Amino acid sequence: MASLAASLRDPAYVFHFLTPSFWSFLIGVVAAGSSLFFLALRADEQGEHFATSHNRDQINEAIRAMPEVVASPKRLADEANQGRNELIRQSHEKHARAQRAWARSQRYKVGWAASLTISALAFVLGYAWPLAQLSFFGAKLLP
C-alpha cells in the first residue's frame, strides 16, 4: 500500500487516505508479536506444571512405599511417621504449585487466542477499509 501511495500523483493525499489501514496493520503486527510472547509464557508454565506433577508423583510413590506407623501413645506414632509426614507435606506443596502453574498456563492460552484474534481482525480490517471506501462509498485515491 505504501508503494502504491508513493507512486501516485499526490502521495500525501493517498498516505492520508490509507492512514487507518497503516494503524490497523501496526495493531496486527503488535498483536501477532504478543501472541508469540503469550505462547512462550504458556509453554513455560506447562513445563513447570508437568515437572512439578512428575516430582509430586515420585514423592507419592515414596510415601506409598513407607508404611504408616500406628502406635500408642500417639506421640510415638508421630515421631515414627515424621519422615512420612514431611513427604506428605511436600506432596501437597507440589500439588498446589502444579495447579497454580496450570491455571497460569490457561490464562496465557486465553491471552494467546485473544492476540491471534486481534491480529487477524486488524489485518483483515486494514486491508478491507480502503477497498470498502473505494468500492462502496465512492472515495477516490486522487483528489
Rank of each mutant, 00 (worst) to 15 (best):
L134H: 02
W112Q: 08
V70S: 14
N60M: 06
V110C: 04
R89L: 11
R100A: 14
R84G: 07
V70W: 08
R107C: 12
R104E: 05
Y127E: 06
N81Y: 04
F123H: 03
R107Y: 06
W112P: 01
S115P: 02
A132Y: 10
Y108E: 04
F136T: 09
F136H: 08
L125M: 12
A80V: 04
N60G: 02
S119N: 01
I118W: 01
V69D: 05
L76D: 14
T117I: 07
R89H: 10
E93I: 11
A120T: 07
Q106R: 14
F123D: 02
P67K: 15
S72R: 09
N85W: 00
I88Q: 09
S135R: 10
Q99A: 15
E79G: 07
R84Y: 04
G83S: 14
A80F: 05
P130S: 10
L131Q: 12
A103I: 15
P67C: 11
L121C: 12
D78Q: 11
Y127P: 01
A96F: 04
Q133N: 14
H95M: 12
P130E: 05
S91E: 01
A77G: 06
N60H: 00
A101L: 06
Q82C: 12
R84E: 06
S105L: 10
V124H: 02
L87Y: 03
V124M: 08
F136Q: 10
G111F: 03
V69T: 10
G83W: 00
S135P: 01
Q82D: 11
P73H: 04
L121F: 09
A132G: 12
R97G: 04
H92V: 08
A101T: 07
K109C: 09
R84V: 11
I118G: 02
Q133C: 15
N81K: 08
A103P: 02
R104P: 01
A114S: 05
H92K: 15
E68D: 11
Q99R: 12
L87T: 07
E68A: 14
E93W: 05
H95F: 10
L87H: 05
A128T: 05
M66F: 08
H95K: 12
Y127N: 05
S72Y: 12
A132L: 15
E61D: 07
I88A: 11
